[in-house]
């Protein structure tokens, strides 16, 4: 028996799983090869050490984190079954992006009262000054992380939910420490990928945002979906949707409540070439 063959049999020898013949062979090899005999001693030590790790504490909120992810699955199933038709899917998904941003304005963790399929998780709750902006072919993502946050940027895939689908292609991933500024340009070859996904994973939430096709937001099919979706979410959360919205073109800023914000969001998106959506200090910007 040579050294390579002996090493291949270390586990079986240690576990007493060798035939009598092989066991005698390997013992004979150890008598003639001090190096393998020594290696086997340290192998046994490593083998035993593997099993000595202590149990780790399970985070208190793990069950809640999982439940919310499952709630999202329920929500998406319900939403998919309620869809009027495939041609409206992208537009409807775009409406949800705007809706989630608006709800995030008023969202407070202690007011989280929704259950089951009514829930849409809010955007990274502790992130502030979130901006996603397209400038000369480069998408900029900026925010200040309130907690340790991980950001996955992905492109493409089938738009089926707020989270990146499995067929989306990863572009980059970053881990941001609490309190740090995240200011990252995502440069892509050729046209801006459609859609571009931003998966933000904090300590308690993992949510996705996607950057839909600009053309969709200028489409007439968008009209009507925004108010309905926003209203449904507002009802689901039991909160009043309130936001100040800065529209495209004229730099106007208004304080809006309830139905007003819904109307303003619809009006702002109807006639825009759409460059960015941003949420800064509680203000929803559509540029």
């Amino acid at each position: 028996m040579n050294c390579d063959k002996a090493q291949e049999l270390f586990s079986d020898f240690h576990e007493g799983a060798l035939t009598e013949g092989l066991r005698l062979n390997i013992n004979r090899h150890f008598e003639n090869c001090a190096s393998c005999a020594q290696d086997f001693l340290s192998f046994q030590q490593a083998y035993q050490s593997c099993s000595t790790l202590s149990a780790v504490a399970v985070p208190d909120d793990l069950g809640e984190t999982i439940a919310r992810r499952l709630d999202m699955v329920d929500f998406e199933r319900k939403r998919a079954s309620a869809r009027p038709g495939r041609w409206l899917r992208t537009a409807a998904a775009a409406a949800v992006v705007a809706a989630v941003l608006a709800v995030a304005v008023m969202y407070k963790p202690d007011s989280y009262r929704g259950t089951g399929a009514n829930i849409i998780p809010p955007i990274a709750q502790s992130a502030t000054e979130l901006t996603i902006e397209k400038v000369n072919g480069t998408v900029w993502i900026r925010f200040v992380a309130g907690e340790k946050t991980r950001v996955d940027v992905l492109e493409g895939g089938t738009v089926e939910s707020l989270l990146p689908p499995n067929d989306a292609k990863p572009i980059r991933v970053d881990t941001i420490a609490a309190g740090s500024h995240y200011n990252v340009p995502v440069t892509v070859d050729g046209p801006i990928p459609q859609p571009l996904w931003l998966k933000v994973s904090g300590m308690k939430e993992t949510v996705g945002i996607f950057f839909p096709q600009p053309a969709v937001l200028t489409s007439r099919t968008f009209t009507g979906d925004v108010p309905q979706t926003l209203q449904a979410i507002a009802n689901g959360y039991g909160v009043v949707v309130e936001a100040r919205l800065i529209g495209p073109g004229k730099p106007t800023s208004q304080s809006l409540v309830g139905a007003e914000v819904l109307e303003a969001a619809r009006a702002a998106m109807e006639n825009t070439s759409y460059k960015s959506i941003s949420l800064t200090n509680g203000v929803l910007h559509v540029r």
């Binding site: 780790v56 399970v58 793990l62 999202m72």
Partner: peptide, 27 residues
Amino acid sequence: QARAYQYAYRLTGNQDDASDLVAEAFV
């Protein structure tokens, strides 16, 4: 969930990634 977390923690080596991994697995 606890057993899945123990496994995920030893694979990833940190709490956040382990939680993410377990949540994704249950989805």
